[in-house]
Amino acid sequence: MIYGAMKFSIGGSLKLAFRPWVEGLENIPAEGPAILASNHLSFSDSFFLPAVLDRKVTFIAKSEYFTSPGVKGKLTAAFFKGVGQLPVDRSGVRGAGEAAIESGIKVLKSGELFGIYPEGTRSPDGRLYRGKPGGLARVALGSGAPVIPVAMIDTEKIQPPGKVVPKLMRPGIRIGKPLDFSRYHGMEGDRFILRSITDEVMYEIMKLSGQEYVDVYATAAKRQLAEEAKAASAKAAGAKPQGSGQADTKGG
C-alpha cells in the first residue's frame, strides 16, 4: 500500500514534470521474476525506471538510509521503503556484496522484479564501464530469472553534480529483450562463466544506450579522477606568483 501511494505521487510527478520517453515496455513480463540490469548515470535512475512500469521494481540501498536517527532519518527511511528500496547492511565479514546477492535472489524467488546496476556505481563521465561479475551473474544463476537489459538516456543531464535545481528535460529509457542464461545453471562458481554473462549483458546495454564503452571498472575510474583532481589542486596551491614570499632586499 505504501509503495502504491509513493509510486502514484512520486512516479506521477516525475512523468508529469519530465515526460520520460520509453521504448520496449513490451519486454517487461506481466508477471513472474525478472532482473532489470541497467546502466547507471544518475541518482534518479532508481526513480525514473519504476515510474514508467506498472509493476514494482526493488533496488538495493545502503542500510544507513533506513537507520538514521531523528525525524529526518525516519522520513528518509519511509521514503526509500515507499519507492521500493531494500536495505543492505555493509558491515560484517561478507560485506554488501553477499547481502545484495541474497536479497536479490529472495526478491526474485517471490516472483518480483529486481533492479541492479552491473557497473556497481554511477558513471563518472557518462560513459559505460565494465560490469562487475560478482553481483548480476550470481543473482541470475541463483534465481534462474531472465535478465532484461535497460538503458537510461540523459538522466545525468537533469541534475549534474553541484546543481541544486534539476533541469526540466525529457530523459529516455530503452528496454531490451530478455536474456536467458539457464544454460549455465549450476556454474555459479566458475568465474569465467560469471564474466561471460556480465559481458553479454553489458554489450546489450551498450547497444541500447549508445554509450562509449570503457573496459575498466567505474570505481577505478572514479579513484583515478579523484587522484588527478587532488594532484591538480596541490599543484595549483604550490604555484605562487613570481616573487611572492621573498623579502625586498633593495634599499629605499
Rank of each mutant, 00 (worst) to 15 (best):
R170G: 02
L141Q: 09
G134R: 01
G135Q: 13
Y65K: 09
Q242T: 13
I2E: 12
Q159M: 15
F8N: 05
T58I: 05
K207D: 06
S46P: 01
D248G: 11
A229N: 10
P149D: 10
E64M: 07
L208T: 00
G12N: 13
S9W: 15
A229G: 03
S91A: 13
K240H: 14
H185Q: 13
M202T: 04
Q85K: 08
G172W: 03
L53W: 07
G186T: 12
A145R: 00
G162E: 12
A140G: 03
L14D: 13
L141T: 06
S38M: 15
P133K: 09
G251L: 14
K81G: 15
G245F: 14
G24N: 10
D154P: 10
V71M: 14
I205E: 05
V139A: 10
K230C: 02
E98N: 03
K56F: 01
P241I: 03
V214K: 05
E26W: 06
A151S: 14
V216N: 10
A220M: 08
R90I: 10
K132N: 09
V107C: 07
L113G: 02
M169W: 05
G189S: 12
D190W: 02
K15F: 08
G142C: 12
P50T: 05
G126Y: 12
F18S: 08
A100Y: 04
R127T: 12
L208D: 00
K230V: 01
L53R: 02
L108S: 07
W21P: 01
V139T: 15
G134D: 08
A30Q: 15
T155I: 03
G12I: 09
S182C: 10
S143P: 11
S143V: 11
G115C: 06
F18Q: 10
P161V: 11
K207P: 02
E227P: 01
I28P: 00
A229S: 14
V214M: 05
Q224K: 15
T155Q: 01
H185E: 15
H185S: 15
N39F: 02
L141F: 12
V83E: 10
G32C: 07
I175Y: 07
D215Y: 03
A234G: 00
A100E: 02
A96G: 15
T219V: 13
G142A: 11
K132F: 03
G12H: 11
G32Y: 12
G92W: 06
D180S: 06
L41A: 08
G70I: 09
V139P: 02
R130N: 03
D89F: 07
K222A: 09
S68P: 04
E119W: 01
S182Q: 11
A34P: 00
P29G: 08
F59Y: 15
A221N: 04
Q224V: 07
F59L: 05
G243N: 11
M202Q: 09
V201T: 08
V93N: 11
T67L: 06
R19F: 13
E23G: 08
K106M: 07
F181A: 01
R130W: 06
R191W: 04
